[in-house]
Amino acid sequence: MRRGNRIVLACIYWAFVLYVFVPLILMILMGFKDSKFIGFPIRSWTFDWYTGIFSDVEVLYTFGYSVIIALLSTLISVAVGTWIAVLLESRKFWGRAFTFGLMVLPALVPGIISAIAFRIYARWLEIEPGMGAIIWSHAVHNVPFVTLVVMARLSTLPKSQIEAARDLGADPLIAFLRITLPYLVPAILGASIFCLLLSFDDFVRSFFLGGYEPTLPVLIFAMLRSGMSPEINAISTVALVLTAAIGIWAERFTRNANKGSV
């Protein structure tokens, strides 16, 4: 009975793996098709689409643009998110539950509503649509993820270490910089990678807050609306390989770092 169950469940698991991987594998394959026409079967193969996008200035520029946005927004998210985490985890204070609720709000608002709200707010603040607006919206949206990860790590920090530092004469700031911050490094790095990927992959906020220069997902979306072509597959594949590789690396890195320092 139990054995039979196990086999059925294993089949379901592998079927799910297929569901999750097959579309991506098909998409990658299609990028090597030697024809402008998207569809199966693929009869001849080529690398032309890849050489094409790597010599296309617009694609390369868009790529760099997305990376810069991801880096800058991550920097802001990490600094602000860590600060909020330290506040929320340090002591109980009046209104802490409310503060926590406000902190997670951007992560719970459905994508389209979040984008619209940022668009309206940006106009009120007189931020022009464009790079600054995108960076700002990504930064705000990603803060909760940083705060949650850092809070989880902070809650395992032995309080005695801080007390010892204070007893030895360190003021709160130095105790924070020399004890707490080094302890948080793995969490902060993990959260940074997560923010980078969230920002790099984000479509809806970049779409509504962007000016004339598209980010990579917005560019792919615009190309898709005017028709599918293997060129899009090549661009998507490059983005896919990059994000998946960074994701896997971060996963392993944070696991090792957490193991090492606990």
Partner: peptide, 22 residues
């Protein structure tokens, strides 16, 4: 792994899976 990949790219993958010549 696949969930690290962005929304648009994965949507496009579904389009290729389900198209008339998909």
């Amino acid at each position: 792994i696949p969930f690290w990949v962005g929304e648009i790219v994965r949507t496009y993958a579904i389009m290729i899976l389900l198209g008339n010549t998909g």
